[in-house]
Simulated scan of single mutants.
Amino acid sequence: MSSSNNITAFLNFLAFMCSIPIIASGTWLASNPDNECIHWLRWPVVFIGIAIMLVSLTGFIGAYWKKEGLLGVYLVCMALLIVLLLVLLVLAFVVTGPTGDYMVPGRAYRDYRLEGFSYWLRDHIVGPDNWGNIRACLADSAICSKLNNQYVTAEQFFAADISPIQSGCCKPPTICGYQYMNPTLWINPTNAVVDVDCSIWNNDPNQLCYNCDSCKGGLLGNLRKEWKKSNLILIITLVILISVYLIGCCAYKNTLTKSNSKGKK
């Protein structure tokens, strides 16, 4: 076996192993309760991981046993896979780009403004066409109601590291000056005109701040926080796949050359 075939087989085995943490990462993103209301962003990482696993296995078999046909199929699929991974990385960088969170004095959690996130995210994720379904899903979920079982006093709640969705959707913006009664019950705002979300807040468990821009910002903040954990894995995988692809081209060329030499004999 030529050295390029050996290297291609080894690197494809490495890519195959890399697909396992990608699938695990994607499964974690998809199964996280905070992501249950954004369906189309839940599974792409898992699909990419499975595709890498299958394509890498094809490349390993083709390179190790010098199967010209398999190597050809592998190279075409690998090229498509690299393009898909690049698209996914662009999406990941858009998701993890500008942020609308800001620190609140005396609070462990952050508050969220929708304006701080990219226009693409605001338009495609929490725009008018999508928000109605997302809002209904959030209202039906236990994201906010479970806070009442976790925190009793204001001191406990203010010291809690709640998720961006919970900060944006389950309570009014801190700047409004509402008085804490429990995590989802707030009264007597002292600064009710400073932000439009202050007047939107409603103590009805089916309303809360689900119609607030801060809720949309919290949803995007949650996506940013979780996708950021997957970015490093995706970048490393892309570098490995490009290296495997380039060496795979050499292996395919060597296999063709040997096949042609045998044909001439």
Rank of each mutant, 00 (worst) to 15 (best):
S2Q: 10
S4L: 07
S4Q: 11
S4R: 09
A9H: 01
F13S: 09
F16V: 02
S25C: 10
D34Q: 13
N35C: 05
C37V: 10
L41N: 05
L41H: 06
I50R: 02
A51E: 07
L54C: 11
S56I: 06
S56R: 04
T58Q: 09
K67T: 04
G72C: 06
Y74M: 04
Y74E: 03
L75C: 08
M78C: 08
L85A: 12
T96Y: 05
P98A: 12
G100E: 03
V104W: 01
P105G: 10
S118Y: 01
L121A: 11
R122K: 14
I125F: 09
I125M: 11
V126M: 09
V126W: 07
G127S: 08
W131Q: 07
G132K: 06
I134K: 06
S145V: 02
V152D: 14
A154N: 11
F158N: 13
T174K: 08
I175L: 14
Y178S: 06
N182K: 12
P183A: 05
W186P: 05
W186V: 04
I200W: 00
Q207G: 01
C209H: 11
S214Y: 03
S214N: 05
C215G: 03
L219I: 14
G221E: 01
N222H: 14
K225M: 13
W227E: 02
S230M: 09
I235T: 03
I240W: 02
I242K: 01
V244K: 00
A251N: 07
K258T: 12
N260C: 07
S261R: 13
